[in-house]
């Protein structure tokens, strides 16, 4: 058990280090801006007062490492600074939007995960059949299609032509739960399509790989019924790769949300990020990038640790 704790601790340390480096990269990214930051962002014709306010806001008068430490400490405490565009507090700006984004991601995941894993397992069990082949054709096409194309097709057919769903997802937290689900149905379905193909392909590959292993042949030759071979011999060993696939794809999903939110004008963090990049509202960009990256890193870290603790070689050392 000791070695397993050690490895998990190592991974956690590496994860925290990665987060630290990301924060550094995000911070330095802005620093690296050639020339004077204020002028570059605000343009040469900016009023001197605006430039001064900007400098104060970014604390450009202080040395870099002190600014970094202050920025990071404030960030960890939940103080994300103020937006350049409208001067509002970023934490307030981001809070609701982050919740909206997580709501959408969870909604999509709750459809995508069971369907994708189920279909992936079926495709692996019935590989080389018409079922497998048609699934593989469909996934190949979905992987090849840009997210916004799926989104607009949804809008064109499910919103404009037939009026089943609203084309713009205007959601607020005052809405009843099911209304919110209804309003965000189209982005959720789009997002589902986006990650499902990958998840299905990866699940299938993991299971096929597993079914080729000699101990599965051995189990078959022991005369065990097929359901038992799959349930008792394949499944326990498949668990760790499948968990891995799911979490990695959840990480994809969190990022994929950005484009989908823009298509459906969904009031989430992704939309905010894109708007802020366009308007070069750097503090907001920094904050939302850090949140996205941290979610992504933490999800991948979880996948890593789960696959360690579900490995029998790790659980029962010599």
């Amino acid at each position: 058990m000791n070695s397993i704790l050690k490895i998990v601790a190592q991974r956690l340390a590496l994860g925290i280090f990665t987060l630290f480096v990301i924060s550094l990269v995000i911070f330095l990214g802005v620093e690296a801006l050639p020339g004077d930051l204020a002028e570059a962002v605000l343009g040469r014709s900016a009023l001197p007062e605006t430039v001064a306010a900007f400098r104060r806001e970014l604390r450009l008068d202080l040395p870099m490492h002190i600014r970094y430490i202050e920025w990071l400490t404030a960030f960890v405490q939940g103080d994300l600074g103020n937006s350049l565009a409208n001067g509002r507090e970023i934490s307030e700006l981001i809070g609701v939007r982050l919740a909206n984004t997580l709501f959408l991601a969870l909604f999509a995941a709750s459809i995508a995960v069971p369907v994708a894993v189920g279909l992936g397992i079926l495709a692996a069990l019935y590989r080389e059949t018409w079922f497998d082949k048609s699934i593989s054709m469909v996934t190949l096409s979905t992987i090849s299609v840009p997210e916004f194309f799926i989104g607009y097709i949804m809008i064109a057919f499910l919103a404009v032509q037939t009026n089943i769903f609203p084309s713009i997802s205007n959601i607020t937290w005052e809405m009843p739960f099911f209304d919110r689900l209804y309003a965000s149905a189209l982005p959720a379905i789009t997002l589902t399509f986006v990650v499902m193909a990958h998840m299905m392909r990866m699940t299938r590959a993991a299971i096929v790989n597993l079914l080729m292993s000699p101990y599965i042949e051995m189990a078959t030759l022991k005369g065990l019924p097929r359901w038992r071979v799959i349930l008792m011999h394949a499944f326990p060993n498949a668990l760790s790769p499948i968990i891995n696939v799911i979490i990695i794809n959840l990480a994809f999903l969190v990022v994929g949300v950005v484009v989908v939110e823009v298509v459906f004008v969904y009031p989430g963090l992704g939309q905010l990020l894109v708007d802020s990049v366009s308007s070069r509202d750097l503090p907001v960009v920094q904050a939302s990038c850090l949140i996205f990256a941290a979610t992504y890193v933490l999800l991948n870290l979880t996948a890593d640790i789960l696959s360690i603790v579900t490995n029998p070689r790790m659980l029962h050392p010599k």
């Binding site: 000699p214 042949e217 029998p312």
Partner: peptide, 10 residues
């Protein structure tokens, strides 16, 4: 290969 033919999980 006995090592590969036993299920590692049991």
């Amino acid at each position: 290969s006995a090592a590969a033919s036993f299920n590692p999980a049991f």
